[in-house]
Design a protein around this nucleic acid. Structure first.
Lengths: 243, 243
DNA sequence: GAAGCCCGCTTGGTTAGTCAAGTGCACCAA
DNA sequence: TTGGTGCACTTGACTAACCAAGCGGGCTTC
């Protein structure tokens, strides 16, 4: 029995063309060999060549122009692999890996903003986990997770032990759903009294507040993660194509 | 001569399947008709059917499982059409459409942060356009655009007349490049003396500052748009898939 | 009754060929 | 010289057919 894995032909062609573009053999702005030429060189049928070129176009390596040919753009500047989005990172972070201190874990009444995000009545019961994250021994971030009590009760989410996996796993198994996307809300505000004390900032400090609402494929919200960052210590970065 | 446009067959199939999913004819979680069935019903060859289904999978309408079939997920919760990203919106906004007042337009020395974003030496010459945007008669946002002087000089960017098209058009034609993507930096800070006066906020107010760096396909930066928003008036929203 | 094989279903990948539509150049005629 | 025609080359869309691989149920065999 053989367990070798040979990638499909079109994938091999993709790899080879990416290599040639990276190496400068096909410089940016130049015309790529035509479908016919590639068919001859690689011994593939036209649909196979076209499929590979279609993937390269979708990923931004090349642009095509009917009647003229395909032009090299170069390696796409925005890597398609996971950009570090704040909300996604919060959802998959474990409490043990970050230098963090658990401040609270248990049932509370949902604040208005959180109830609205979760689609609950005001003052509904939710489970809150609050964490103080330190960097270089200094408090640098407060992170809070809200889950509807109907989902969280009876699970590790409501207990004081550090979570050993990311929030997402717990919510997905407790609710029996697969979290699909995140809706992020970002705003700036002054600290509450508690935040002022925990973060050691002035009353007038400008804080960055990020609310990440994680929803399933139907758009139903299941968990809200809030993180509060002093603006003078943090900056969020994000990259996206213009069109 | 006829100028009718008939969309390709695979696109017609996509439209029809989306309609059936939306209408509930193919409920979420159900098994889609097999490729063979669709071939028979719509009178298309298999690659045509497969191409349509591939698009639907990429857009999140369905998931496929080799050996079992394709399962309906429902209309994707995140619409693929242009999400209103702050930076993109700033770049295409015209100065005439927003109720705005031009505060400055002309050459200045680049502040450190802007020079860094543009990849210029400190205190390089740049052209600055600063605008105060009002909503309901109240000042609500300060927007500033920074373009290297080598690009902007001699163009409408350095003049006091309102720009009649978005910043992007001007920069693209002045620099002879096509802007490809945006790198966005978000932070929170207290207002400068000027911002305090213009926005009518307190010294201790928390402002949201967004820096959008627009780059061409090679990653070279061409323009920075900064927008400053009082945190108590504004909230940025963004949606993205988890994986 | 249980284990294992086989077959029919599904999707994934590939081929060879057709026709249509857009682009640019060479050639020819006025 | 100028204008138009036609051809060669490009990508876009589509077809019919084939084999491979994953899944599951039914049948056979022990």
């Amino acid at each position: 029995m053989s367990f070798e894995y040979t990638p499909p032909k079109y994938a091999q062609l993709i790899t080879e063309l990416e290599r040639r573009i990276d190496s400068g053999e096909y410089p940016a702005g130049s015309l790529l060999p035509s479908e016919h030429t590639l068919m001859a060189e690689f011994g593939m049928a036209r649909p196979t060549v076209v499929k590979a070129l279609g993937v390269l176009r979708d990923q931004g390596w090349i642009v095509t122009q009917q009647g003229k040919g395909r032009f090299v753009r170069g390696r796409p500047a925005i890597p398609k692999d996971q950009k570090a989005r704040t909300g996604r990172e919060l959802l998959d972070r474990t409490e043990t890996q970050a230098a963090s201190k658990l401040l609270a874990a248990g049932p509370v009444e949902a604040p208005n903003r959180i109830a609205a995000y979760l689609g609950l009545e005001q003052k509904s019961a939710v489970v809150l986990r609050k964490i103080l994250v330190e960097r270089d021994g200094e408090p640098t971030e407060i992170s809070a997770t809200w889950v509807p009590a109907t989902v969280a009760e009876g699970t590790a989410l409501a207990e004081s032990a550090d979570l050993r996996q990311g929030i997402r796993r717990y919510v997905e198994s407790a609710a029996g759903v697969s979290l699909d996307h995140i809706i992020e809300h970002i705003t700036a505000r002054n600290p509450t009294a508690e935040e002022r004390k925990l973060l050691g900032v002035k009353t007038s400090a400008a804080l960055l507040a990020v609310y990440a609402v994680a929803c399933d494929a139907t758009g139903k919200p299941w968990v809200v993660v809030e993180t509060v960052l002093p603006g003078d210590l943090h900056e969020l970065e994000d990259a996206y194509p213009i069109r």
